[in-house]
Simulated assay, not measured.
Amino acid sequence: MNATLLHRLRTELDERRRGPGLRSDLVVSGAQGPTVGVSGETLVNLASNDYLGLAGDSEILDAVQRALREMGLGLTAGRVLCGTREIHGQLEAGIAELVGAEDALLYSSCFDANLGVFDALLGPDDVVLSDGLNHASLIDGIRLASARRRVFAHANLDELERHLAESADARHRLIVTDGVFSMDGDIAALSQLCALAQRYDAVLMVDDSHATGVLGATGAGTAEHFGLEGSVDVLTGTLGKALGAGAGGFVAGDRAIVETLRQVSRPYIFTNAMAPPLAVGALAAVRIARGRPELRERLAANTAWLRMALGDLGYEVLPGDHPIIPVMLRGGSLARDVAAALRHEGVLVFALSHPVVPAGEERIRVQVSASHTADQLELAATAFGRARAVLAGS
């Protein structure tokens, strides 16, 4: 082993240990759902992206079990070799129907989808204009492309327009934004972004990972939420949040965009195909998300109730109506201390601190599910009330 490399890594790990600390993975047990097992205890789970409660849906699980017996565990080839099954095309068609696009293409994750889009569609004569709070996968995907890059401050449309005007020489200008920003739970100003894209003949791309299945009357996402169906040129999303919590991601859009990605997108070409049982489960989840609006209604009611309860307890809750509820606990280790107190009270949440969020913007991110019962939400509110003792001692 190279001693120089190991010495540097150990030194940097020691510095991180003395500063923000080292992250470690929490080991949980049991099926994903409104509760989760941790160290032999059952905790109310406010830390997952299972927005519609489909991770444990019996219809989906039954479909996956049948597919596992009929099609086996997985595939040992990419889609361009012998890895494509009929279910992949069915799922792509189902996703396209859900989000209102001409076509869709599956990836192993939305991270891979975002890595594969920019380099495939753009070149050195193009420019990407990216919101400053975009997801890491978008940032990394932009870095892999040869297109020029411009970053505008989060939701600062004046700065975005200035960048658009200054890049008039570009062949294509592509505006990219999260549909819902995962740290704040705020929704992109899609109406204004669409207007700017039209004014400057720009391409509009949205990562709708936290909106697909959640926003809009049929769960189509951010565009449907604002009544702007058909306004997004390139849409990416995940099957691993509201749509059943399985693996997989997708790109949806015009058939020419999707076909181009099928031909040249490296993460699509050089990755094994999605396991057929997971594709079967995802297709069942897509159909349920579209056909059972009562799940979104229950999710909205649960979110509104818990937002109000936390506000009544005196917590600073960022405004919004998405099931991501940021509870601001600014400064030092306060967010971590409150999260630890909540776990002691039977509630699982996670504290977010620098570098995940800026210093001074520490918070607990609460995530609500349609599957949470009234009793579970009451327990969570009571736990937050008791955890205020941590605030009193700070």
Rank of each mutant, 00 (worst) to 15 (best):
I257Y: 09
R10Q: 11
V280E: 10
T238L: 06
E259D: 15
E345I: 10
V28Y: 09
E159P: 04
N114Y: 04
V206H: 07
T238G: 09
G385H: 11
T260M: 04
L306R: 06
G311V: 05
R298L: 09
R296H: 04
L318N: 05
I95W: 12
V64H: 00
S39E: 11
Q192F: 11
G360F: 05
I257W: 02
A145S: 15
R292G: 01
L196G: 13
D207R: 14
L75P: 01
G83Y: 00
Q198W: 04
V390N: 05
P323G: 15
S109K: 03
I257N: 03
R149S: 14
A383C: 03
A289P: 08
R386D: 05
A93N: 06
R290S: 12
L243Y: 13
L129V: 15
D201T: 11
L91F: 09
Q367N: 07
S108F: 13
S209I: 12
G320W: 07
M328W: 10
L295P: 01
Y268L: 08
P124E: 10
G230A: 08
A170Q: 03
I139Y: 05
R171F: 12
Q198V: 11
A380C: 05
Y315T: 12
R255D: 09
M1E: 09
H88S: 08
D119M: 00
S146V: 03
D57M: 10
A165G: 14
I325Q: 00
A309M: 03
H322V: 13
L235I: 06
C110A: 14
S369E: 02
G281I: 12
E159T: 02
L313F: 08
A351N: 08
A242P: 01
E97T: 10
L160G: 04
A67V: 07
H172T: 14
V28G: 02
H225Q: 07
T238K: 02
S394C: 10
H344W: 06
P34F: 14
R10Y: 09
A339S: 03
I139F: 09
S231E: 06
S146E: 11
G116N: 11
V366M: 02
D25I: 04
A381F: 11
H88L: 06
I257T: 15
A47S: 14
D50Y: 11
V214L: 08
T177K: 02
